[in-house]
Computed example of a mutant assay.
Amino acid sequence: MQRTSLKEFVSEVGQLKAAQALCMTQGAISKALRVEREVYVISLGDGKYRAEEIKPFPAQIQRLAS
């Protein structure tokens, strides 16, 4: 199992093939790259891929009451 950043994966195979491999649209790949989401592509070894995103937890910033 190999883990690669989405940016690196796209640079190797192109946006269209990356989108097809991840069952996404090319537009979704483009937007993820543009907003610099922290996405990693994992090769499952049988020609299939999956992606996972690393996000802060909790996703929303907690505001202190004044």
Rank of each mutant, 00 (worst) to 15 (best):
P56A: 09
A65G: 15
K17V: 00
A21H: 02
V10A: 13
A59T: 14
Q20P: 09
L16S: 08
L16D: 02
G14H: 14
K7I: 02
L64E: 14
K55Q: 09
S30R: 12
F9W: 02
S11H: 06
A59H: 11
E12C: 11
K31M: 09
A19H: 01
R34W: 04
K7V: 04
R50H: 02
K55T: 15
D46P: 05
L44Q: 06
G47I: 15
K17L: 08
K7T: 01
S43G: 02
P56E: 10
E53T: 08
S5G: 10
V39G: 04
C23Y: 13
A59F: 12
F9D: 04
L22F: 09
C23H: 14
G14A: 11
R3G: 08
S5L: 06
R37E: 04
L6K: 14
Q62W: 15
Q62M: 13
Q2L: 08
A19G: 06
D46Q: 02
V39M: 07
L16N: 08
V41A: 04
I29Q: 01
V10S: 11
I29S: 03
Q60I: 13
R50S: 10
E38N: 13
K17Q: 11
L44A: 05
G27Y: 06
I29C: 00
L64V: 03
R34H: 11
S43V: 02
V13P: 03
S66Q: 11
Q26A: 10
C23D: 10
L22R: 06
R3I: 14
A65N: 15
I54T: 04
A28T: 13
I42H: 08
A19V: 09
L44M: 11
R3T: 12
A28Q: 11
V41P: 00
Q26R: 15
A18E: 00
R37F: 05
I42Y: 10
L44I: 00
R63M: 14
E8K: 10
E36G: 14
A51T: 03
L64H: 12
G27A: 06
V39P: 04
D46T: 01
E8H: 06
V13S: 05
M24E: 06
E8T: 12
A59R: 13
A59Y: 10
G14S: 13
Q26P: 03
R50M: 10
S11L: 13
E52W: 13
F9M: 02
Y40P: 01
S66M: 12
S43P: 05
Y49L: 07
G45A: 02
L16M: 09
G47L: 08
A51M: 11
Y49F: 14
F9E: 04
L22D: 00
S11G: 08
C23R: 15
A28Y: 05
K31P: 14
E12I: 07
Y49N: 03
T25W: 01
E52F: 15
A21F: 08
V35K: 14
L33C: 11
V39W: 03
L22Q: 01
R3M: 12
K7Y: 10
Y40G: 00
Y40I: 01
R37L: 05
Q26H: 05
P56N: 09
V10F: 12
E52T: 15
S5V: 00
E53Y: 01
C23A: 13
E53W: 03
V10M: 12
A51W: 09
F9S: 05
Y40T: 07
K48I: 03
V13R: 14
V41C: 00
V41W: 01
